[in-house]
């Protein structure tokens, strides 16, 4: 039995050419039955036939079997005349010839590539220094240059002085807890029927942070069943109401 893996063949023709050559068969006089037997035996010998790999191999097996059956059955025309057809193997032989030729050409290319891998070329070098592209010179005398440098140093000193005496102050931002307390105190002592528009709860409507913070706080209060909110339409006003539950009395 053949101990070769399917993957070691570059395709069904590769396997077929191998089998034909191995059994010393003439490519122009293929014994179809024998070679089909070998081919199918070979496919069967594979333990696990990987469908992905094997599909094309099986197609050729079908072609071979079809070929054999064509050779067995004589053809007659409609009025009973025996038809002498071309040898049905011709097409397969053409394909095999073409494939063998490809293999020779591939081998030739391989040798060529091996030989020419020893050939080196030079990459294009940076030739800008040969081209007329002179560096730009600044027209300055030493005094002017020194003055500019001193000016630069002084400016630097000024900035570091300012930094030394002043600290950067950042506005303190409100937290969710603080905002929740604010909203709760607004609702404190109000009746159930009282409501506020969401926008009324935002201290500074121009500040995106404030808007977001208020929104998150309202959501938190809704989760805790302290307030409820309604919006009649998309992008419409949001009305925030207090939920009146005795056990949930807001302090």
């Amino acid at each position: 039995m053949y101990k070769i893996k399917l993957e070691s063949f570059e395709g069904p023709f590769d396997l077929l050419v191998y089998l034909i050559e191995n059994s010393k068969m003439n490519i122009y006089d293929i014994k179809v039955a024998e070679i089909t037997r070998q081919y199918v035996d070979y496919l069967e010998a594979l333990d696990d036939l990987d469908v992905e790999v094997a599909t094309e191999f099986i197609v050729l097996a079908a072609v071979l079997i079809n070929l054999k059956s064509k050779m067995l059955i004589p053809r007659f025309s409609e009025n009973g005349e025996f038809l002498i057809e071309d040898d049905p193997r011709v097409e397969l032989v053409h394909k095999l010839e073409e494939y063998k030729l490809t293999k020779y050409r591939a081998a030739m290319l391989e040798k060529k590539m091996e030989y020419f891998s020893g050939v080196f070329e030079k990459p294009q070098e940076d030739i800008s220094k040969y081209l007329d592209n002179p560096d730009e010179m600044i027209n300055l005398d030493v005094d002017q240059f020194a003055k500019a440098f001193i000016l630069f140093l002084e400016r630097k000193k000024k900035i570091s002085d300012v930094r030394k005496n002043y600290q950067r102050v950042e506005k303190q931002k409100a937290s969710i807890e603080e905002r929740i307390n604010q909203i709760v105190s607004v609702f404190n002592g109000k009746l159930e029927s009282d409501y506020y528009e969401f926008s009324e709860l935002i201290p500074n409507k121009d500040d995106n942070y404030d808007v977001a913070l208020t929104f998150v706080s309202v959501l938190e209060l809704m989760k805790e069943q302290i307030v409820t909110a309604e919006q009649e339409e998309n992008y419409g006003n949001i009305l925030v109401k207090k939920i009146d539950k005795k056990e949930n009395e807001i302090e």
Binding site: F116, V119, E121
Partner: peptide
């Protein structure tokens, strides 16, 4: 056209 070295000198 381009200058190259020969493979024999690889």
């Amino acid at each position: 056209f381009q200058y190259i070295t020969i493979s024999e000198n690889e």
